[in-house]
Amino acid sequence: MSRVIRWGLLSAGNIVSQFARDFSVVENAVIHAVAARNGENARAFAREHGIANAYEGYEALLADPEIDAIYIGTPHNLHFEHAKVALEHGKAVLCEKPMTVTPQECEQLQSVAEHRGGYLMEAMWTYFLPPVQKALRWVQEGRIGRVCHIKADFGYPQFPYDSKKRVYDASLAGGCLLEMGVYPVALAWLFMQQDPTDIQVMARFAPNGVEDDLSVLFNYPESVAILGTSFRCKLQNWAYIIGDEGYIAIPDFWRAREASLHVLDDRVDHFVDERATDGFHYEAQAMTNDLLAGRAGSSVVTARDSLAIQRQMAMIREAFADDA
């Protein structure tokens, strides 16, 4: 591969900084520019991460003919708008999760990508982590038998409460479902590849009516998934995929560094990812490779995956909407 994929970063927020740090190990790619609404923030970000170009505002970034791919790390409610305009500028798009805030937006965005022949991928970095991929192979190889239960949660306290804080701000699509609940929902979809036949949700709410604690039960024809997310407390943040012949445990599954395979009380296999990074480089490398190979989309986080995750989060919202 002789060509280098040139990336642009749309936003200079915290998650974009993590992405930029990990990018140093991505091969055949370079971060060409970063853009932020505040020009000084963009320039400071560029200095910190050794990026050659910094833009005030996003239009200059999108219009830069040197850029092949755009990574979007803005608030959830802006993802649709920013991804759409990036695709319209002919850029490949890696958009932070959740890629949109409704299934309808997701479908529209995917339609734009298809119409323009563009590359669009949701930045569900967890799917690319080697321990999660190893767990998926163990299941596919039949090493835990038939999947009976999935348990996954993700929660961190978000104190003090402030209705203007991004995670609580309803105008910015705040709430624990989109902010953190997307991880356990995505994990359940990865291993089940089907919608639940029915769901039960127990919800708690912040003073402004935004959900800040959810317990969710997905009922499938032959199995169940018990999922949780919270702004009120630190949850265990592990995932368990439990079959009738064994189970898999993934500590801190959303940023997984290891996975263990158990039969009854015995650990029979163990995988550890010895990476020196947080793990964002896996998705960046995969997308870079896709672009260099001329592939139309990702085989790891597909359009079907992103739409299913949106659809299931909409089901959860509908289940607790009347209680808000």
Rank of each mutant, 00 (worst) to 15 (best):
P130I: 12
C106Q: 15
V224A: 03
R146I: 07
Y168M: 10
Y71W: 12
E40P: 00
R257E: 05
I316H: 01
I70S: 04
G209K: 09
L10N: 02
W125V: 11
V25Y: 05
I309D: 02
A324V: 07
E59V: 04
I31P: 03
A276M: 07
P75V: 02
E141L: 11
S163Q: 15
A321H: 09
L178N: 04
Y282L: 08
Q312M: 14
A54I: 09
H76T: 06
D68G: 05
G142P: 10
Q110C: 06
G243L: 10
A46D: 05
D195W: 01
T102C: 11
W189Y: 12
D195Q: 13
Y168F: 15
K84P: 00
L178C: 00
Y220Q: 02
P131E: 10
I51M: 09
L94K: 01
A69S: 13
R143C: 01
V272Y: 09
S163T: 13
R275M: 07
L178P: 00
A186E: 06
A188I: 06
R43I: 05
D322W: 14
I31N: 04
Y156M: 15
M287K: 00
S163N: 10
V301S: 10
S306E: 14
E258N: 08
R6G: 00
I72F: 06
E179H: 08
L264R: 14
V167L: 12
F218M: 02
L227F: 01
A173K: 04
S215F: 03
V210R: 12
T100D: 09
W189T: 00
L291I: 03
V93K: 03
L9H: 06
N208G: 07
L261Q: 09
L217F: 03
K84E: 12
F231S: 02
I72C: 08
V301G: 08
V85F: 00
R275V: 06
K97Q: 05
G145N: 12
Y58M: 11
P130E: 09
V216N: 00
S223K: 13
K91M: 07
R204H: 15
E107K: 15
V25G: 05
F19R: 11
Q110Y: 13
A286C: 12
R267Q: 13
E40G: 06
E114H: 11
I199G: 01
D322G: 13
A29W: 08
A20E: 03
P160C: 12
